[in-house]
Design a protein around this nucleic acid. Structure first.
Length: 635
RNA sequence: GCCGACGUAGCUCAACGGUAGAGCAGCUGAUUUGUAAUCAGCAGGUUGGGGGUUCGAUUCCCUUCGUCGGCUCCA
């Protein structure tokens, strides 16, 4: 019986029964080297799937995200296969593809170490050389249980037990290796051309810290060794932008054993910090914010009232003053609540946007600390907006606009997530649903792509989070907008409505940078330490060629200082090339070389760190240009 | 906090069961230099802290602190 199918481009075709997707592809094109899988009616399937009547077929290669994931997932199976050959008693956890690679979790009888990875890699290469066919089997729940019970794969049995009733359970088999898997997969193991095991780490079973810790093996795979090498080189290059390395090299900040998670900012870092803060203040005044400052340490009663004592206890630092318990603030909100509550409000006063660059301390788990990105004390560019319920949409929209404005200035791409009700939450379900609905609506109205993050909200309300990526593509939460119906309740906050009666305001907690420290770290990595002129700790350095031009160089420096620039003078007894090299390494935007020629003409020879020698020009025109560059925050 | 790895001079790294070495940085001197490193000399470390094994430890073991990669958590 011939079978009629439709290709993605609308082309139709009739094929004999038994024709597989792979056959079809071979007929359509001469080259099948990176073909991974097919989409049958939009669903990913194996290449050896026989064609069926009226199927709409399209092909998936490595260069689509789906294709890469399938390819790497197959590499993950080969990893598990190799592990089972070398360690027959190892139990398999899960092994998905992830961005840029894959991993597989195992429980070994005796923990393995990174030294064991080469042997596993060698076994994987063997499996690849064997070109074992990868076959799909659909099985009943009982059959599936039987298979994995026989292999003593207790984690797989747990997975099976949790599969919904109507799930089609499938196994993928290569040689004597069999894994519970929805698929699809490559046709045979030989299709994995290049891979590398990149790491070994602990990971809780199902991501729950109450569960056993398994050993996770990370790897990546590419269709050619060239592309693998390219990727590995890229990673090496990216590591050079690590803010921890640049922070030391450029004397931005330091970390010390004496204060784990408590960063020290140096002068260069402080200059950038102040620029960020100045910019922030200007923008917030423009957007109708007022600014306050609240104490670092406040009485325990306040934190009991706010709910932090119950919900945030493990993360707080405590101290005692005159036999009374005090808490080092982990959040700024209770302070802001007191400020709001310190006077009567009319509905005409709202919204009231109260900002605070607030320093908070949180006792984070030691293993979670990470340079400036994850610390135990940081400054939140916080604000609490007190408003009428009817003002929520407009305020949330306004903040999203402000957030976008900020991130654009720095040239950041960002990702948005909507976090919903966590397990440990205050307030009624209805309240949560309503609040979450409002946030979702605003995002949709603004046509912003976002991901829903179930159960990741704050204990007092749902939130919209803004994520930025570091040099290695790890995602960090920065901006956040959190809706809160709880705090006004807890602090009995009111405003007088049109009707003359007391009403409850709604509160939004929001940060734009998020944590100044984290944002700073991300900026360092984003620019690779080469800050735009408006942020650069030193904006230009004057380089006299010989001692003859030192007087002139000093005049140039003075003139630029008077114009408000941050400018150095390198009057050391060194050659020009040496001084330029040092200025380059410090990533100073402009180098002004002054020798006999410049002294004579009253000019400066301008060199830009990226554009190189720009020739000579008048000091005045340099001043004009640099002022413009700074004012416009040119990246 | 958990799993694994690591901790030698300011930085990057070397060595080794017999009390540590290089490059860069630093300091001193010479050199007066034109767009990414001038030359020479000097100085610099109780090998993260504590304990143990040993005739002897930086090297082996334990412990503790810290860092790194993950997990968990989160700005």
């Amino acid at each position: 019986m011939p079978i009629k199918i439709v290709l993605e481009n609308g082309e139709e075709g009739v094929y004999p029964d038994g024709t597989t997707c792979m056959d079809l592809y071979r007929e359509k094109t001469a080259d099948n080297k990176d073909l991974i899988a097919v989409l049958v009616n939009g669903k990913e399937c194996d290449l050896n799937l026989p064609l069926a009547e009226r199927n709409v077929i399209s092909f998936v290669d490595f260069d689509s995200p789906k294709g890469a994931a399938i390819y790497r997932h197959s590499a993950g199976h080969i990893l598990a296969h190799a592990v089972k050959r070398l360690y027959p008693t190892a139990k398999m956890g899960i092994g998905p593809a992830i961005e840029n690679g894959f991993y597989y979790d195992f429980e070994f009888e005796e923990p393995i170490s990174a030294d064991d990875l080469p042997a596993i890699e060698a076994e994987m290469k063997k499996i690849i050389r064997e070109r074992k066919p990868i076959r799909r089997h659909e099985v009943s729940r009982e059959e599936a249980k039987g298979i994995f019970r026989a292999q003593n794969e207790t984690y797989k049995l747990e997975l099976i037990a949790d599969l919904p009733e109507d799930t089609v359970i499938s196994c993928y088999e290569q040689d004597d290796f069999c894994d519970l898997c929805a698929g699809p997969h490559l046709n045979h193991t030989g299709m994995v051309k290049a891979f590398k095991l990149t790491g070994l780490a602990g990971a809780y079973w199902r991501g729950d810290e109450r569960n056993t810790m398994l050993q996770r093996i990370y790897g990546t795979a590419f269709p050619s060794s060239e592309r693998l090498e390219q990727y590995l080189t890229l990673i090496e290059e990216a590591k050079k932008r690590d803010h921890r390395k640049l922070g030391r090299d450029l004397e931005l900040f330091s970390l010390h054993d004496e204060g784990p998670g408590f960063p020290f900012l140096h002068n260069n870092g402080m200059i950038i910090w102040q620029e960020l803060a100045d910019f922030w203040r200007r923008e917030h005044r423009l957007s109708g914010y007022e600014e306050i400052k609240t104490p670092l340490i406040l009485n325990r009663h306040l934190w009991e009232q706010s709910g932090h004592w119950d919900h945030y206890h493990d993360n707080m630092y405590f101290t005692k003053i005159d036999d009374q318990d005090f808490i080092v603030k982990p959040m700024n909100c209770p302070g802001a609540m007191l400020v709001y509550g310190s006077k009567m409000h009319s509905y005409r006063d709202l919204p009231r946007r109260i900002a605070e660059m607030g320093i908070v301390h949180r006792h984070e788990l030691s293993g979670a600390l990470h340079g400036l990105m994850r610390v135990r004390t940081f400054t939140q560019d916080d604000a609490h907006i007190f408003m009428l319920p009817g003002q929520i949409e407009a305020e949330v929209a306004g903040i999203i606009g402000l957030m976008d404005h900020f991130y654009r200035i720095f040239g950041f791409d960002y990702r948005v997530e909507l976090s919903t009700r966590p397990e440990k939450a205050m307030g009624s379900l209805e309240m949560w649903e309503k609040a979450t609905g409002i946030l979702e609506q605003v995002l949709q109205d603004k046509e912003i792509n976002f991901k829903i993050n179930e159960g990741d909200g704050a204990f007092y309300g749902p939130k919209i989070d803004f994520h930025l990526e570091d040099c290695l593509g790890r995602s960090w939460q920065c901006g956040t907008i959190q809706l809160d119906f709880q705090m006004p309740e807890k602090f009995d906050l009111t405003f007088i409505g049109e009707d003359g009666a007391k009403h409850r305001p709604v509160v939004i907690h929001r940060v734009v940078y998020g944590s100044m420290e984290r944002f700073f770290a991300l900026l360092i990595e984003h620019y690779g330490g080469a800050f735009p002129a408006w942020l650069a700790p030193v904006q230009s350095t004057v380089i006299p060629v010989t001692e003859r031009s030192h007087d002139y160089a000093r005049q140039v420096q003075l003139r630029l200082k008077e114009e408000g620039f941050r400018v150095n003078l390198d009057s050391r007894n060194e050659k020009v090339g040496y001084k330029i090299r040092e200025a380059q390494l410090k990533k100073i935007p402009y180098m002004l070389v002054v020798g006999d020629r410049e002294v004579e003409n009253g000019e400066v020879a301008i060199r830009h760190r990226d554009k190189g020698d720009l020739g000579s020009g008048s000091i005045n025109s340099f001043i004009t240009d640099l002022k413009k560059e700074i004012a416009e925050k040119t990246i």
